[in-house]
Design a protein around this nucleic acid. Sequence first.
DNA 1: AAAAAAAGAAACGCTTGCGTAACGGTGCGC
DNA 2: GCGCACCGTTACGCAAGCGTTTCTTTTTTT
Lengths: 116, 116
Amino acid sequence: MPVELTPSQALGLWHTVSLEQVRVDGRDLTLRQMAILLQIYLVPPPHTVRGLAATLGVTKPVITRALDSMGALGLVDRARDDRDRRNVVIKRTVDGALYLEKFGDLIIDQGRKQPK
Amino acid sequence: MPVELTPSQALGLWHTVSLEQVRVDGRDLTLRQMAILLQIYLVPPPHTVRGLAATLGVTKPVITRALDSMGALGLVDRARDDRDRRNVVIKRTVDGALYLEKFGDLIIDQGRKQPK
DNA sequence: AAAAAAAGAAACGCTTGCGTAACGGTGCGC
DNA sequence: GCGCACCGTTACGCAAGCGTTTCTTTTTTT
């Protein structure tokens, strides 16, 4: 069952969620970082730097840096792949899952507030 | 009629929209800039720097700079208020309206693709 | 008319992200 | 074993955003 939105609802939802996120969350992830984070948590592992770069359509250093930043925030973790030690597998964290859970609740709440 | 979303749909929607936006749009507005832009276009005017700063919970220079950046992109415009020449009224532009219209379509499209 | 207040912009130093290019560690074909 | 391709990271110079403070202009207050 898809999500059916009117233009007004679509932009209104984005508006109120963004607004609330700006007001409440000091972390202020960039759109790219948010896309990476969601990719890691919503798509089945394993995730690699190269894979994320391809999916996002960006260069590898962009991924490395985003992982640095989000790692410092405790939202993701990294570990060498033992089967191929060139690879790095990106791992989820409890804090990251909590962060996204809270964010999902925010979206749901703001969705309920959208008028027809 | 509100928008009812499951947790999976909420995050999934944000995921696919962010992903597509990263892939397609080179402009890469920050979350704050996006919140400001949506505020300007979705809430009845007039909009002032001070008002936006209060709404977003940020300082005035943040708004000024965001307006500089988005003004350079043609997404918003500024004009002195003739009734109180200390104020600057933020004005919408055709390009800005088009930009948000496209963005709204993206949200709607991705919403349709969300599984139950 | 003089002083205080208000709005927005500009200046300052700092932090963070970017793209490109170069770099070490690892795996694989010969 | 040796060279070569691959993966992720680091280095470099640069652009953009931030918070704080200061400034200019305009309005309001007394």
